[in-house]
Design a protein around this nucleic acid. Structure first.
Lengths: 340, 340
DNA sequence: GACTGGCACTCTGTCCGGGGGAGTGCCAAG
DNA sequence: CTTGGCACTCCCCCGGACAGAGTGCCAGTC
């Protein structure tokens, strides 16, 4: 059975009212607030159908209706228009992001901004190493048998590792190593480096072969294998808005999920270009987050995508507004990265 | 009026029982559990005195007693012995910290470990720049008019800043700048650098004077003025243990406070050597944290201190155990840093 | 003088039953 | 297909009663 326009309109009205009031909405209140042009009785019939189809449900007999996950999904896909941001919000974004001094600063400002604008929990992934290129590799002697390896990526990320050398290496050799490593790797995408690193060892003068091998193994580990993703999180206090009503009584499972980087990455890390993804309730496939929704998108300079960002809130959230804000922030951050 | 030994013993028993059961403790239950050698009636008299003195209070008439902040304070100062860690805990600490690949990794592992062992919220401050020395400064050309400045500190911290140059600078000049900057600053404590940086500009060849001035201003900003402290946080989900009972009903204010880096720094950043500090309830001087206690201490290689760490939980916490754990973790982290 | 047993009192938490209210489902009529 | 009417269901709130826990006080004992 398909739903005619009025039933969809009723569903939209239910979602909008419920998001606003946080209370099950009944037929009478609905016609009063929305000028649907029909009587409560008619709306009741429509509601019965919507419930039959699984878009809304009653917490108990003789209560109003509440949208189900499927109801929100339909609302997001077909019934909502993206709200344009207010000029004030645009200004807020610009002001907030101007003046960031380095990548850490950009990420932290972004995540706080996002949390503040959406009044939800915000997550920002640092630019992924897997999607970055090597800008420069630096070797800093710490002692005669120890080097610090610093990799600077074009996305602004900087990774450091301590390298234990098999034996003392004179300063000149370090200079040589530095030159060779940079000649070979600078400008390369990190994902392309492993064979090049191997080449470095093969081409190396026998005297420094052992040192280079050592360096190479750390390089590989840093660049590829252990290319750990980093995250910033903000706005957890926003989970307490709406009292104990959202998240069925306890924040526990939600807070626990937010502590797991792996989970967060799964939530915001799909990174389809210029797509904003909305996951509602069970769609997250994570038990702890059954009553949470996630709005996420990728960001990056220009059209490329280097990382993800998003927000998490109760399924009962203002989707149009949140989607608009997440998109706008992602675009601004992308522009900011493009400048560097 | 001074308190005799038995009254102190009663106070200790009240604190211990309340921490364990989370319920106001009455005179009858107390004598049953603690073999005080006197009758409930006697204990009641002692309790009346303790209440008079402000160490315990009644939530309402005809309820049991609950320790006040002052009661916990007395308990911590005079009535509790530090609990030695179990061998299992020691092993857990070692296993957890072994294999950290860089400073970020050390800090993150530490904060998670601390949260897990104490079952509270854990905070770890990155080694403070103000207490670090410059190990190496690196200048990486990004374009002809842009440099990336990377500072590596002896504590393992790495800071990066983009420097916009007044005009194009050839590669040889960059090499020269790099050498001069390192000769002057490497090995210096960050707090001692400002006059040296000024000297750098004065001594510079006129041709590169403008470039150096530019670099100098970024250096100063990075090294001193904006020497931002960084933090890691974990275990917020632990706030929900004990249900809604701790934190008088809402986590809101606590979560809000935890979002403010400034507040967190104030909480864990006192850094007296080898002292573990306990702040109970109002002693935090932060309204949002009236019902929270903080146990914190400094850490660093050897006897020096480079940063703070600690945990935050309900005033009703296991002080002896928490203090022991915080101390032990700080010591292990210090040892780990000393190795690098 | 300190401790103890006994007793009356107070207050909380909980359970129970009833009334008001909101909202529904159904039906018959337009 | 829509509408007004009506009976029904279920939640929420309120007040009262009750059991339980714990106290404060007092008089008696060592």
């Amino acid at each position: 059975m398909s739903l005619d326009d009025r039933k969809l309109e009723v569903l939209r009205a239910i979602v909008e009212d419920y998001v606003e009031t946080q209370e099950p909405v009944g037929s009478k209140a609905l016609v009063e607030r929305h000028a649907l042009g029909v009587s409560p009785a008619t709306v009741r019939n429509d509601m019965a159908v919507l419930e039959e189809e699984g878009y809304i449900r009653q917490p108990h007999t003789s209560a109003g209706r509440v949208p189900t996950d499927a109801g929100y999904r339909l609302f997001v896909d077909r019934l909502s228009k993206v709200k344009p941001l207010t000029p004030a919000e645009r200004r807020a974004i610009e002001r907030f992001l101007i003046g960031a001094v380095d990548l850490d600063d950009v990420v932290h400002r972004t995540v706080r901004l996002l949390a503040q604008l959406t009044r939800q929990v915000a997550v920002v992934q640092y630019p992924s190493l897997a999607r970055s290129s090597v800008r420069h590799l630096e070797l800093v002697p710490i002692s005669t048998t120890r080097l610090m390896l610093v990799m600077i990526a074009d996305t602004g990320r900087v990774e450091q590792r301590l390298v234990e050398l098999p034996g003392p290496v004179p300063a000149d050799d370090v200079t040589d190593l530095r030159r060779r490593v940079n000649e070979k790797l600078a400008g390369q995408r990190l994902s392309d480096t492993p064979p090049l690193v191997q080449g470095l060892v093969d081409e190396c003068a026998p005297g420094n072969r052992a040192t280079m091998a050592c360096l190479a193994s750390v390089l590989l580990e840093t660049l590829v294998e252990r290319s750990e993703e980093r995250l910033a999180l903000a706005g957890t206090a926003n989970l307490t808005r709406g009292g104990v009503l959202d998240f069925q009584g306890t924040l526990r499972p939600v807070l626990e999920a937010l502590e797991e980087e792996v989970i967060l990455l799964k939530l915001i890390g799909d990174l389809e270009p210029s797509k904003t993804r909305v996951r509602i309730g069970d769609e997250n496939k994570i038990d702890n987050l059954r009553s949470a929704s996630v709005v996420s998108t990728g960001y990056g300079p220009g059209a490329t995508i280097v990382g993800g960002l998003g927000v998490l809130g109760p399924t009962r959230m203002d989707y149009p507004g949140t989607i608009a804000t997440v998109r706008a922030v992602a675009r601004y951050v992308g522009d900011l990265l493009a400048q560097n």
